[in-house]
């Protein structure tokens, strides 16, 4: 088990390094002068020089890269070109709403899509199955911002059950928090629900064909025990895998959802940063989300070992 974890951890290190390299090269390999691109068309030569200087663009590429990595290892992700404040501090201020949104979406996903997927697999080709499949295709096809506006149109504008936009932190009380975060959470989870329920169904269908399911039935076990004790645990690994790889999709969704519902989170920050071409900020946010992705998938690898003894005893 320890050995397995260590191996996974070792694999994560080069991945993180490669992510840093990709992000680094992204700026340096863009055609033309990156400082010019960042500064925009109307920039004066002094402004461009200032940007070159603050990004250290005049040093050789390798030096730039090692300094940059070295600074980051010391917790220095650079300063914003616009506000001149450390980007890490700016991110810290905006991360709360995003975390809250992602958590709510995740919880909604699990409580909605697992039962749906299992129910669909149980009667393959039946009414529930076709319904779940249709809903999941719909979830893949309707953009989050459209779902967001439909939800706003129905539940906020028409029925007036929820406020149209805005965010209140949990510290303002649980009810105001939930009242404002429910609709964006639901919108954000839509594509995730589509993905996870589809995968749950597919994994369950596969597992239900296995010999040990036939054994369980031959022992006279109830359908509930067969489905949840014998089948779902074996279907867990592919389901967990899409939960992990789908996390990148979730982050993309966060950016859009926060724009639609005007939630002051990281997503808004990144869009603002892009519009202002605040490159250090963009870099830091990409690195942080990619790092989170790697950590989440590492945790999922750990959970494989918990669900499957064959991995645990490797």
């Amino acid at each position: 088990m320890l050995y397995y974890l260590l191996r996974r951890l070792l694999m994560a290190v080069p991945v993180m390094f490669l992510i840093a390299l990709i992000v680094f090269l992204l700026l340096r390999l863009t055609p033309g002068d990156p400082a010019q691109a960042i500064a925009g068309d109307q920039a004066s030569p002094e402004q461009i020089a200032a940007i070159r200087d603050s990004l250290g663009l005049d040093a050789p590429l390798t030096t730039q890269f090692t300094t940059w990595i070295g600074n980051m290892l010391h917790g220095d992700f650079g300063n914003s070109l616009i506000s001149q404040r450390p980007v890490l501090e700016m991110i810290g201020q905006r991360i709360g709403p995003t975390l809250a949104l992602a958590t709510v979406a995740m919880i909604l996903t699990v409580i909605i899509s697992l039962p749906l997927g299992v129910a669909a697999a149980r009667r393959h080709g039946g009414l529930v199955d076709r319904l779940v499949m249709s809903l999941s295709v719909l979830g893949f096809s309707v953009p989050i911002f459209v779902i967001g506006y439909v939800l706003i149109g129905i539940f906020a504008v028409h029925l007036k059950w929820f406020p149209v936009q805005g965010y209140k932190p949990l510290s303002d009380g649980i009810w105001p928090f939930l009242h404002r975060i429910f609709l964006p959470g639901l919108a954000l989870s839509s594509i995730y629900i589509a993905l996870v329920s589809r995968m749950t169904r597919a994994a369950m269908l596969e597992v239900l064909r296995e010999d040990y399911i036939r054994t369980a039935r031959a022992k006279g076990l109830s359908e509930r025990v067969v489905l949840f004790r014998h089948a779902l645990r074996n279907a867990a690994i592919p389901i967990l895998t899409v939960v992990g790889t789908g996390f990148a999709m979730m982050i993309s969704g966060v950016v859009v959802t926060e724009t639609v519902f005007n939630v002051p989170g990281l997503g808004r920050l990144v869009v603002d940063a892009v519009l202002a071409r605040d490159y250090p900020l963009i870099q830091a946010i990409i690195l942080l989300t990619a790092g989170t992705y790697v950590v989440i998938n590492l945790l999922i690898d750990v959970s494989y070992a918990l669900t499957d003894p064959r991995i645990r005893y490797q």
């Binding site: 991945v15 993180m16 490669l18 992510i19 390299l21 990709i22 992000v23 790889t245 990148a248 999709m249 982050i251 993309s252 950016v255 859009v256 990144v270 963009i282 946010i285 990409i286 989300t289 990619a290 790092g291 992705y293 790697v294 998938n297």
Partner: peptide, 9 residues
């Protein structure tokens, strides 16, 4: 590494 970077970002 590429998969870890959210596509839209």
């Amino acid at each position: 590494g590429m998969m870890a970077i959210p596509g839209i970002l």
